[in-house]
Design a protein around this nucleic acid. Structure first.
Lengths: 338, 338
DNA sequence: CTGAAAGCGCTTACAG
DNA sequence: CTGAAAGCGCTTACAG
């Protein structure tokens, strides 16, 4: 029963030609190498009949390339990353590249392992939403002239290709929106990660308040520990909203914090209305279907994916790597209820 | 700048030993092979200093294994699959296996490509939520004695390991729940895929109605085309709910159909209350946060992942493959509002 | 028009 | 205690 996989040698023997000939035919070089039509047909027939598939591991070892792009994200079950992954996969597939992906869960150790795993598997290019602490590994990839594109999160020390949105501006606009609606005590619920992207979101909030000459209340900015279980976050937020009853608007700096926050508000029976407004980062079904609908900062998934894949293919087809580019896209504030 | 990757040969040369010795040390066979402590230390020092990582492609080519498990799902951006992926990844990681995953989008062509891709990459085991039309490829894997576990969706023709929930029973119980609440016209919104799992969900609905001797209204079962754009589905459902105003309860056979359905109801301004009940398949944040909260059939993600990974490791560690097992788990009806 | 042979970077049976 | 050598399945420069 067990059909040990065929090799190019088996095909060559069966067709009475050399493995060189079979290899040329497999790689579409038959014509260029002047293989006779008769031979080509004979070999192709055997390949098809036997269902022979060349061993890509051997091919990779020999050529040093794999036609695989590695995608490393923080958490694939986050809809933002899942959406990006899906779009990138589609686009890569059309150019005959496959994507393999994995989640870092924001653990530098795991992120490093993954980069090394991909490297040792001869992945041709890397798309990374980088965890802090992986600068060295990423720098290493760049040094080895591997195509790399970072997205979502930017590591300041690195001169690498990057695609992301203007987080400062998005937060600024969201906060400004609140201010125009006469909000006075605009809370920010964010995460205690000290990464660019998150810092920018805080800064935008702060700067808008200062620019409009409103008092900035530092105590209305709450930083939730990254790995904290959801239930605890909900309790913490209930406490927070109760403690500062003057809050009349909240900006949530991430998708999952918004979900915990809405759950907290629901448990408190606190209405979202003219007196208490909410804006979430990253749109999702859950915000559209919520009653009332929740306004959200939408990152342009399609545009992000498009830019990433373009940068990757630009690098893949270049003789030497072009200078790193930074593509900063605009997020969009979807206003749904006040 | 460009540091061409080191090889075992470079290390051997530097340490003045043979590559055999380096290989033994790398693979933890140093003691077993009686390599002297002095040599071990010298070699390990060089490996660490130079940051040498063995080329896994070469290793795979030589050993035929890769310590990689391939996970093939319908759509990684579906929270059910993303959740499973995440859990499986965690568990595999602990045993030093990596997961690579990819989406089939329910296209048999893509699913076949992926199986072949994984095969040609020497993936050690396969976890597949199978698209119809891939029976042959999966049978091929089994024939080659590759560890395989199917989940979520079952392909009747195949005698393979399988982990899933009892869909018939879950639908039956959901429908029964409606009947106990005196519902008379229980609609079913399902998808037009003719796969076991979906058929069972329809059957459970039908059987419950028949068992309780209620009239079965075939026109209250609507089958939405699988690839239909969301907006059209919403319009179709609005039309459906308007046409059959007698409907007093709806069971949605999938997660995303429930989301489209809730959107339709929202657009119609149709309240979900004592007179109009809803149950969704697969739980999610969106149902918990909805007003009112939506009841859901919850598949036990953790249990599913656990069983899958156990079956995989059972096969991986067996000398010869054990007889295929089918693990059928119970889904749970989460009653939230009537 | 086609083939023999080297080599990609490993692992491991065999020899000493 | 350690090493030379074969071989995993390919690709490709070279020879004829």
């Amino acid at each position: 029963m067990s059909s040990k996989a065929l090799s190019i040698k088996d095909i060559a023997k069966k067709a009475n030609v050399s493995i060189t000939t079979v290899s040329f035919i497999l790689n579409g070089k038959a014509v260029e190498k002047n293989i006779s039509t008769a031979v080509i047909e004979k070999v192709e027939k055997i390949i098809k009949e036997d269902g022979f598939k060349p061993n890509q591991v051997a091919r990779s070892l020999r050529t040093g390339s794999s036609k695989i792009i590695g995608l490393i994200v923080e958490d694939i079950s986050n809809p933002f990353f899942a959406g990006i992954a899906r779009l990138i996969e589609d686009k890569a597939y059309k150019k005959d590249y496959k994507i393999i992906y994995s989640s870092t869960e924001n653990q530098p150790g795991k992120a490093k392992d993954l980069i090394n795993l991909f490297k040792s598997r001869q992945v041709d290019a890397y798309i990374i939403s980088p965890a802090g602490g992986t600068e060295e590994e990423i720098q290493g990839l760049i040094k080895e002239h591997k195509p790399v594109v970072l997205f979502d999160r930017y590591l300041p020390g690195l001169n690498a290709n990057y695609v992301g949105v203007d987080n400062f501006k998005a937060s600024y606009q969201a906060t400004e929106h609140f201010i125009h609606r006469k909000k006075k005590n605009i809370a920010l619920v964010t995460v205690d990660l000290s990464v660019e992207q998150i810092n920018e979101r805080s800064e935008g909030h702060r700067q808008a308040i200062l620019d409009y000459e409103l008092p900035f209340h530092a105590e209305l900015v709450i930083r939730i520990p990254f790995a904290q279980p959801k239930e605890e976050t909900i309790q913490q937020l209930i406490h927070f909203f109760n403690q500062y009853a003057e809050i009349d608007a909240v900006l949530f700096a991430t998708n999952y914090l918004a979900i915990s926050g809405l759950t907290a508000l629901k448990q408190m029976d606190k209405a979202i209305d003219k007196d208490f407004s909410v804006i979430a980062y990253d749109d999702g079904e859950v915000f559209k279907l919520h009653t009332p609908q929740i306004s959200a900062v939408e990152q342009p998934l399609e545009e992000i994916a498009e830019n990433i894949i373009n940068l990757i293919f630009q690098q893949l087809s270049a003789d030497q790597l072009p200078a790193p580019q930074k593509v900063i896209l605009a997020a969009k504030l979807l206003v749904r209820s006040s």
